[in-house]
Design a protein around this nucleic acid. Structure first.
Lengths: 355, 355
DNA sequence: GTGAAAGCGCTAACAG
DNA sequence: CTGTTAGCGCTTTCAC
């Protein structure tokens, strides 16, 4: 970029002091270094006047700090991640950190590339939603003493800082809620990703189903399908095969969206008759007809916790900070889609009339 | 960060060559500088073996290039911007550029802060959706010879590169479409922002309304309201005051969302009877009941054009590149909400029965 | 109280 | 063909 921006040397020259003096003053170490008030004032006034800004790149090179954090998610255009990105961005900027967002598409190779790339840039820390195969890379980062906080999921056998939610309980409660609304044949639609958060959600569902003596009906859509935007194919088959389903639980947000699209275009399913619950809330769920019940993650809180932990590690980098593993509670937002329906889907049991 | 990463000097020492040689080879200038194949191979093999990665910060300091671009939008958690961010990210990474995303909240002070901040970091270029009062700052950047491409809106009296869409025509066509579906009392809901894209949309609407001899019914919601999340108040009032409206045209995405929420909760409005058209598409519009007709911006194309122009400027930085001002076409996606309704809202005219 | 100078890791002009 | 060296702009130790 332009060479002609004024440097600390120019300032020193103009002011007839040394660069050291200027540097000390600029870094607020004037008093500490016993620089005279007069000189301090002179420097401050001058730099203010010419609106001098130190070259951050040079600072980074010298100090080894970039004040840049990386926030790596599956897909930044996903509602949930975008909202969270915004929250993290706001907190970071207040603390004079910049945030680089990137999408790993839940792909190991891409995740690895991105991590290396940013490592080369000497970013100060990583907030990562890890794809399943990068445990090793995360471990490497930590060994190199680079702050890492995981989110949404974690590796049970790796000692990392993380923030997550009570997936199992949330899932159990939502299923239980469907059951108490009178639904008996509840399908669970999830992905085949063997990641802790999805497994926990499945467990929660199964627990509720089993403890009520019902039959578990699970569809695991492969990630390969999902990525090729073919997630709808297996879902359509599933709905066709299991016409006796009276409710559906979508395990994550993009599944809900695709599922709702399919339901809308499928003749034998009436969205007003079938029970629906979604993991992850969305602004559009309350506008949907019927409005969609959802498990809402505490976005603000998640963002705050992630940044709190990150800033903490950054501050105490010398000491081994105690491991922070935070599990936050979700909130079930009951809307129309999960309430008891007026007509019994199968006609073979009675329903409490709520809706 | 860690000091113990191997540097180019270490490599030179280990290999008994000079740093220059290593640097040339690493930068692919081996052939050009006539370094022997044997040495080239030796260097490449060694650096591969130890997985050496140059320190990008030092590179930046030296070359004055950061290979970082900034993409500044109103709000990164907004569906439209998030989608676009994703597309730009993908293109940039392929060209070995990183992208910093940030939200300016359509606020001048914040925009200014962000621009300065990134300017200090020597980012290589800016893609900006400008808030209305930062014309000056954009001008400053350009004077400093920093690549800037504007998007979504621009300053008519400032010679900048930009990518935008045919707001006026899109708006005219959508209004015309409502009219040919039999709607006669079409409200237009927009913001009070005096930005070219919003003004053009308003103009398009007015032109269609007037040329059909109808009455223009416009609600301009102040940005102050919108920011305080109070946008719904004036909208509710508007709907109450204008109960004769038979259709509504929302001028931008968050207005649509808020509007749909209000319609859903307002007794005297039946979403199945009123005509609705939205500027900006959303995945949820096709799931909505009724599905919502929308003007879709060509996201992929916009992202590609923005990056094409940016990379172009970056390449030809010495020469004054010719001004690139691209206007892309939108696509009107006709869904249920804008089709003629079975029952005439006012009962005083007949409708063609389409739906 | 202040200044000189080393050096972070890299690039590239210049010298041989 | 390869090596020496001068910076890029900043921080910080050490000396005066």
């Amino acid at each position: 970029m332009k060479k002609n921006r004024t440097s600390i040397k120019d300032i020193a020259k103009s002011l007839n002091v040394s660069v050291t003096t200027v540097s000390f003053v600029l870094n607020g170490k004037g008093k500490e270094k016993k620089i005279s008030d007069a000189v301090i004032k002179k420097v401050i006034d001058y730099t203010d006047a010419i609106n001098y800004k130190p070259n951050r790149v040079a600072q980074s090179l010298r100090t080894g700090e970039s004040r840049i954090l990386v926030f790596m998610v599956e897909d930044i255009s996903n509602y949930f991640f975008a909202k969270l990105a915004r929250i993290i961005e706001d907190i970071a900027y207040k603390k004079d950190y910049k945030v680089l967002f990137c999408s790993n598409e839940n792909d190991d190779a891409r995740s690895r590339d991105l991590i290396n790339l940013f490592y080369d840039r000497r970013v100060d820390g990583f907030i990562i939603i890890p794809s399943s195969g990068i445990k090793n890379d995360i471990e490497q980062l930590m060994k190199k003493n680079i702050p890492v906080v995981l989110f949404d999921r974690y590796f049970p056998d790796l000692e990392t800082h993380y923030v997550t939610i009570d997936n199992g309980r949330a899932s159990y409660n939502a299923t239980q809620h469907l059951i108490s609304s009178g639904f008996k044949n509840i399908g669970f639609i999830t992905t085949d990703a063997q990641q802790i958060q999805m497994l926990d959600r499945l467990k929660g569902y199964n627990k509720a189903i089993e403890s009520n003596g019902f039959v578990s009906q699970v569809l695991e859509i492969s990630f390969t399908h999902l990525k090729a935007d073919k997630g709808k194919v297996p879902m359509r088959d599933f709905f066709k095969k299991h016409q006796d389903l009276d409710a559906i639980f979508f395990a994550t947000n993009y599944l809900t969206q695709q599922g709702l699209e399919i339901i809308k275009e499928t003749k034998h399913i009436d969205i007003n008759e079938i029970g629906v619950v979604a993991f992850d809330d969305n602004d559009f769920f309350k506008i949907h007809t019927p409005s969609i019940s959802a498990i809402a993650q505490p976005l603000q809180e998640i963002g705050e916790e992630l940044m709190r932990i990150m800033l903490d590690i950054l501050k105490n980098k010398k000491d081994t900070t105690t491991l922070e593993q935070v599990v936050l509670s979700t909130q079930f937002i009951e809307r129309e889609s999960s309430q008891a329906k007026k007509t019994a889907p199968n006609g073979d049991y009675s329903l409490s009339k709520k809706s």
